[in-house]
Design a protein around this nucleic acid. Structure first.
Lengths: 136, 136
DNA sequence: CCGCGAGTTGACGTTTACGTAAAACGCCGC
DNA sequence: GCGGCGTTTTACGTAAACGTCAACTCGCGG
């Protein structure tokens, strides 16, 4: 009882539409070692594995990670089943690093929210002042 | 009763050390309209206002905002006291945009954490398997 | 007066992450 | 058999965010 939606394949333009990136971007990510689509002739065929990787990559980007960083995690993850102790240790290091990254980002977000609140308040005060002047 | 630490000034290398960025970066931010230090002769003199701006800028960067985005907020904020209604409205728009940005980032962080947890678990399993093989 | 350290001003270089345009390939319907 | 559409390869271009000199200038201690 294998899942049928799990065996789907995608063209480059399909993936492109799904994630709102250009085909060029997808090919570039492949060139950078983030994707490894199959080939039928010269045409690329993407499976769900590739779709997931692309999703991970884009999320990583939104969080400010470079493609090189993302690739290293993916590579180590792929090599995980037959990895040696040193590689596994390296992966754990990387993960800890990413975590501390996320933590600082959360703090940055909190702080930034406070600042946005502050700016918005002053902005609304200024609007009120304008309205009063127009009225008076 | 004015605060004395509030009237401090900083040299470019002082600021540079405080935030662990190069002087070049600080000058570049000025060129991009993010800082406006005083001058004594040809030498730049930074006040706390500049220090705060730099801090905001660097935080914005860590959150993936471009220097241009950060500058627009800063400019509108500075022009706030004598701003017209259109500018204030624009600022409110910008703020809302940043907020939704932060919200998506928080979701990205949650998701990324889940994925890191997953990877780490598999990694530890692999380490255990290695240890058992070495032992057996 | 001289050198030294800190700072400044161009100017050009570099990295990352793609955009863009040209030329060719392959399949599909008519 | 051929025009069109999607895809590919190759190559050059570009924007952002600095790095890296090189060639000043300035103030100061000796």
């Amino acid at each position: 009882m294998t899942s049928d939606s799990a065996s789907r394949t995608y063209s480059i333009s399909e993936l492109s539409r799904m994630f709102e990136v250009t085909p060029r971007t997808i090919r570039f990510y492949e060139q950078e070692g983030l994707l490894e689509p199959q080939r039928r002739g010269q045409t690329r065929i993407y499976h769900d594995k590739d779709r997931v990787r692309l999703k991970l990559t884009l999320r990583g980007k939104r969080l400010g990670f470079s493609l090189a960083e993302i690739r290293e995690v993916i590579e180590l993850y792929d090599a995980l089943p037959n990895g040696n102790a040193r590689q596994l240790q390296r992966l754990l290091e990387l993960l800890a690093e990413k975590r501390s990254n996320l933590q600082r980002q959360e703090e940055d977000i909190r702080q930034m929210r406070r600042e946005l609140d502050d700016v918005e308040e002053r902005c609304r005060e200024a609007l009120l002042a304008l309205a009063e002047n127009a009225e008076g």
